[in-house]
């Protein structure tokens, strides 16, 4: 029986080696690109193995440049007119939906096939969710935000069905795990119905698959927790470390970033089966490497509310592409060590 207690996992992205990131856009779509993306994936899987991660995701998303752009580039109906400011002098590509969107080809199939051939560990495929894709696009073509989000949901649903075909009889004893990435999920509180409907549509009719949602940097996770009964998901992978203090200990003051887990648990108690919570225990926006003790304290604090260790997963707040590979590795290593230390206690 595979281990179910405190599964350690990646959220998605990991910093690309220079030989890939420097030439990514120049060679994308060529044989050389595939070769380099595969090489980078193998090296990243090696790092994850060394760190002791139990779920290796898709090896750090080496086939993808960025979560929005990768999916948008695989669709008909989207034009890119240029970059848009995210903050300071940091920009991202925001597409304009200029006509009905349609999938040109599978956007994660090649990546999944490669991963399945190259690891025995658990795999989780992150897919940018329909609500976030809608919210991060300019909408020139659809009548409403609702229509566009549901169109994205239909496309994601087709993609997951294709991934299921690739998964086929499975990978050891594990189910295919899909993580719907929805960083925009709680940005428009009045649209939580649309978040629920579009995420549910994305996974509609797909059996024998584990579905989770990843949300990060939300101003109010309660908006999401309140909708747990409506979301047809098995778990949530969330960011907490960023809002926490760096003090060790399990006091409420030290663990301020995790204080709303009590509210999560209240809602989760009514669910059958209960949802798992992927606990962000390391901040991807700072270079400081959280000590094993600090991460332990974060896990132990959360356990006071969640109690059952099979309902807790341990992960970074978000993709580690924001840090160097060395720092990312150290953060994962300490995370695994902290998990191993608390393992015996529950």
């Amino acid at each position: 029986m595979p281990e179910r207690k405190f599964i350690t996992q990646e959220i998605g992205s990991f910093r690309k080696p220079d030989y890939l990131s420097r030439r990514f856009h120049q060679i994308q779509g060529t044989e050389e690109f595939t070769k380099l993306a595969e090489k980078a994936t193998l090296e990243t899987l090696g790092l994850f193995d060394q760190a002791g991660l139990m779920n290796v995701g898709v090896g750090g998303e080496m086939f993808r440049w960025e979560m929005y752009e990768h999916l948008a580039n695989s669709l008909e109906g989207i034009e890119f007119y240029g970059l848009v400011r995210s903050f300071d002098n940091k920009y991202y590509k925001k597409g304009s939906v200029v006509s009905n969107i349609k999938r040109k080809s599978s956007f994660h199939g090649e990546e999944l096939e490669f991963i399945m051939d190259n690891t025995e560990k658990r795999i989780k495929v992150p897919i940018t969710g329909p609500y976030t894709m809608m919210d991060w696009s300019f909408n020139e073509a659809y009548k409403s935000r609702e229509d566009l989000a549901m169109a994205y949901a239909d496309i994601i649903n087709q993609e997951i069905k294709d991934l299921k075909k690739i998964w086929g009889g499975g990978h050891g004893e594990e189910k295919l795990e899909i993580q719907i990435d929805e960083p925009a999920a709680t940005t428009h509180p009045s649209e939580m119905d649309l978040v629920v409907d579009s995420v549910n549509r994305s996974i509609e009719g797909i059996q024998d698959t584990e579905f989770s949602i990843h949300v990060c940097y939300s101003r109010d996770y309660r908006l999401l927790y309140d909708r747990i009964p409506d979301l047809k998901l098995h778990g949530l992978n969330l960011e907490y470390a960023n809002r926490d203090t760096m003090m060790v200990g399990v006091s409420d003051e030290a663990r301020i970033g995790y204080d709303d887990i009590a509210y999560f648990s209240e809602i989760n108690e009514e669910q059958y089966p209960r949802k798992f919570l992927g606990l962000g225990v390391t901040d991807v926006h700072i270079n400081e490497i959280e000590s094993v003790q600090l991460i332990r304290d974060r896990i132990e604090y959360a356990m006071a509310f969640i109690e059952n260790p099979t309902n807790v997963r341990i992960n970074p707040d978000c993709g580690l592409r924001t840090r160097s590979r060395e720092i990312g590795y150290q953060k994962l290593k300490n995370m695994v060590e902290a998990r191993d230390q608390v393992y015996g206690e529950y």
């Binding site: 400011r85 995210s86 903050f87 991060w136 925009a184 940005t187 428009h188 101003r219």
Partner: peptide
């Protein structure tokens, strides 16, 4: 986050 956008301010 600046209002309900995907742009951020300090």
């Amino acid at each position: 986050r600046y209002k309900e956008t995907n742009t951020f301010y300090r």
